[in-house]
């Protein structure tokens, strides 16, 4: 039994050390519901479906996990998570998170692809991303006031 407790503590220690590295500088641990452990597996995601026009978007998943109220705020295909915060299920190790994500979470692009005129109500990938982002960002005043904010906030313009 002692052995198990020791192992868990060791893992926690390692995670605490590693965490800043994968979460990047934006990680404001302690601000959101993810506070207790600050663990989230995907870390930073490169969104590059528009890389023809823009530099890929560096999406800091960790930071968003920490501010989101619950996973289904973005991951709408995960309705069971509506009532509970992310960390209640995912405040575990990265491996565990990955395992749980495999069964519970789906990447946006696995459903949302190119726009299909036959299903006009179904968002394409671009709309899926943006509508998700804008739920919060429109209210934060950095979207919808200046077309330049697109390139200032997320989409660095491709050089050349």
């Amino acid at each position: 039994m002692k052995k198990i407790v020791f192992c868990l503590m060791a893992i926690c220690l390692v995670l605490l050390l590693v965490q800043p590295l994968c979460a990047g500088s934006d990680s404001n641990a302690g601000a959101g519901p993810a506070a207790p452990s600050g663990v989230s597996a995907p870390g930073t995601i490169l969104l590059d479906s528009l890389s023809r026009i823009y530099e890929p978007v560096n999406f800091n998943h960790d930071m968003h996990t920490s501010v989101a109220e619950h996973c289904s705020q973005c991951h709408h295909e995960h309705p069971s998570a509506k009532e509970v915060t992310c960390t209640e299920c995912h405040s575990i190790t990265a491996t565990d998170f990955r395992r749980s994500a495999k069964t519970g979470f789906i990447a946006c692009r696995s459903c949302h692809a190119a726009i299909d005129p036959a299903q006009p109500g179904f968002p394409g990938l671009k709309a899926a991303y943006h509508r998700t982002c804008f739920q919060c960002h429109r209210d934060m005043g950095d979207v919808g006031l200046d077309p330049l904010s697109c390139s200032m906030k997320c989409h660095a313009k491709k050089k050349g």
Partner: peptide, 24 residues
Amino acid sequence: IPGCAEACPTQSVTFGKRSDLLKL
């Protein structure tokens, strides 16, 4: 699909059969 509908980041401009769009 039309250029504007393809470019719209939020699909606030949606292209489709008019009858489908009315339903939507």
